[in-house]
């Protein structure tokens, strides 16, 4: 089976079954499907590009090496997001992070490192004016999300960036459904207050 077109038609469950049967291409397909959402979630949780990449690698290595223990009755996406979220929460518990810097990792020590770890915004920008506006708004929302409690951050990112249902978020985070809803409402409320000055302007 070739690498892309045939795999695209298969569900996650079918790809996992192929991986269990020893198909390396199936492993690569699972990484292709989830590398961006997992990396984006981890980046916005830990706010450090290099660290997010390390945690994303750790997540995939852990999940794929344990592919035989995955239970197909659950969604693969829930399983891998759960592993990623646990990795991020474990890290955050061990280390208090600084505030978000759009100009690069707070741990970067050289200008090159700052550049290399800077948040890449611009894929959807059209003109210099749009770019400035988008950077200002995007930066403000990124910063405001970065200041949320980690639990609120996980919930709001899974809900509005990844588009996961409340029930799936509850499964990923091992939280009651009501708690997930409360966290998301509180997070949106905090974001509304944090961005009030921009809206007024």
């Amino acid at each position: 089976m070739a690498d892309t077109p045939e795999w695209v038609r298969l569900s996650d469950q079918e790809v996992v079954l192929a991986a269990r049967a020893g198909r390396e291409a199936a492993y690569r397909e699972l990484i292709r499907r989830y590398e961006r959402p997992i990396f984006a979630l981890l980046f916005r949780m830990v706010r450090d590009r290099e660290l997010a990449e390390d945690l994303a690698q750790e997540t995939f290595i852990k999940a794929l090496n344990a592919i035989e223990s995955y239970r197909p009755e659950f969604k693969f996406s829930s399983w891998i997001f759960k592993i990623a979220n646990n990795a991020a929460i474990d890290h955050l518990r061990r280390r208090e992070l600084d505030t978000l810097s759009l100009d690069g990792s707070p741990h970067a020590e050289t200008p090159e490192a700052m550049q290399a770890t800077a948040l890449q915004i611009g894929a959807r920008q059209e003109s210099p004016l749009d770019a400035v506006e988008a950077k200002e708004l995007g930066g403000a929302i990124e910063a405001a999300i970065g200041r949320l409690r980690p639990e609120y951050r996980s919930c709001i990112l899974l809900r509005h960036v990844e588009g996961r249902a409340y029930e799936e978020i509850a499964e990923i985070l091992d939280l009651p459904l009501g708690t997930v809803k409360t966290y998301i409402h509180r997070a949106r409320n905090e974001l509304r207050l944090a961005l009030a000055h921009l809206r007024e302007a």
């Binding site: 990396f39 948040l119 929302i141 509005h160 949106r188």
Partner: peptide
């Protein structure tokens, strides 16, 4: 919500 959903896509 539009602001959150409009956050840039990211890749490793």
């Amino acid at each position: 919500i539009a602001l959150i959903e409009g956050l840039p896509l990211m890749s490793p």
